[in-house]
Deep mutational scan, measured.
Amino acid sequence: EVTIKANLIFANGSTQTAEFKGTFEKATSEAYAYADTLKKDNGEYTVDVADKGYTLNAKFAG
């Protein structure tokens, strides 16, 4: 089991951190699915991958 950390950075400057656990593939998929649920209210996002894929920095356009 691994933990994927998602740093969510919103256009207004606020941030949120979420963690997803499971296999690498499952946890990564859940992190992206969570970011997708936030698109409606926060706009499209881009992701910078860090820490060999164990940290995802998602920046929302607003």
Rank of each mutant, 00 (worst) to 15 (best):
T46R: 09
L8G: 03
K39L: 07
L8R: 00
Y54R: 06
I9Y: 13
I4F: 01
F24W: 10
I4M: 02
K5M: 09
T3N: 05
E25F: 09
E30C: 12
N12I: 03
V2H: 06
T37I: 10
A31M: 08
E44M: 10
D48G: 08
E19S: 11
Y45L: 05
G53Q: 03
F60H: 02
G13K: 06
N57H: 09
K40W: 10
T17W: 09
D48L: 12
E1H: 12
F24K: 07
Y45E: 02
Y32H: 06
T37D: 10
D36S: 05
K26G: 11
Y34G: 01
Y54G: 05
G13P: 00
A58T: 09
I4T: 01
S29H: 12
T37S: 15
D36A: 07
G43E: 04
A31R: 00
D36N: 10
D41G: 09
N12A: 05
A11G: 08
K5L: 12
F20N: 00
K26E: 13
F60G: 02
S14P: 06
L38W: 13
A35H: 01
V2S: 06
S29F: 13
E19H: 12
L56M: 07
A50L: 14
D48W: 13
Y34N: 01
L38G: 04
V47D: 02
G43F: 02
K39R: 12
G62M: 07
L38D: 00
K52W: 12
A31L: 08
G22F: 04
N12W: 05
F10G: 02
T28Y: 11
A18Q: 12
A27H: 02
G22Y: 04
D51L: 01
D51W: 01
A35Y: 15
A18P: 01
T3S: 08
D41W: 12
V49T: 09
A31S: 04
V49C: 08
T55N: 03
T46S: 10
A6C: 15
A11C: 12
K59E: 09
N42I: 05
A35K: 00
Q16R: 11
K5G: 03
D36G: 04
A6M: 15
T37Y: 12
L38H: 14
A6P: 01
K40Q: 11
A35I: 15
E25P: 06
N57P: 03
D51F: 03
V2K: 04
I9T: 11
T55M: 05
Y45T: 00
V2L: 06
A6L: 15
I9H: 11
T3A: 05
K21R: 14
A61F: 14
K52M: 14
F60K: 00
L38N: 05
K59T: 15
K21P: 03
T28M: 13
K21T: 13
K26R: 12
A61C: 14
E19D: 07
K5D: 03
V47N: 01
K26Q: 14
Y45N: 00
V47T: 06
K40R: 12
A35T: 07
V49Y: 09
N7K: 07
E30P: 01
L56G: 04
T15S: 11
A50P: 03
I4V: 10
Y34D: 00
S29L: 14
A18T: 10
K40F: 11
K21I: 11
A27V: 03
G62F: 07
V2M: 06
G53Y: 01
K5I: 14
N57L: 08
K52G: 15
N57G: 03
V2D: 03
G13V: 02
I9W: 10
A50I: 11
A35G: 01
T23P: 09
A33H: 09
V47E: 02
F20M: 01
G13N: 06
A33P: 01
G53T: 01
K26Y: 10
V49D: 04
L8A: 06
F20C: 04
E1W: 14
A27W: 05
A18K: 15
A11K: 09
Y45I: 03
D51I: 01
T46E: 10
V49G: 03
K39F: 07
E19C: 15
Y32C: 08
T23I: 07
K39T: 11
S29T: 10
E25V: 09
T23V: 08
Y32A: 03
E44G: 08
Y45V: 05
E44I: 09
A35M: 15
T37A: 14
G43P: 03
G13H: 05
A11Q: 09
K26L: 11
N57V: 12
S29I: 13
E44F: 10
A11H: 09
F10L: 10
K21V: 13
T17E: 09
T23F: 07
D41P: 04
G22M: 01
N12H: 06
D48C: 15
N7F: 13
A31Y: 04
A18L: 15
A11S: 10
Y45G: 02
N57A: 04
E25S: 09
E1N: 11
A33T: 08
N12Q: 05
A58N: 04
T3H: 05
S29W: 12
D48V: 14
L8W: 11
K52S: 14
G22S: 04
T37G: 12
E25K: 08
E30R: 07
A27L: 00
S29G: 09
G13Y: 04
K21L: 08
D51S: 03
L56R: 00
F24I: 08
Y34V: 02
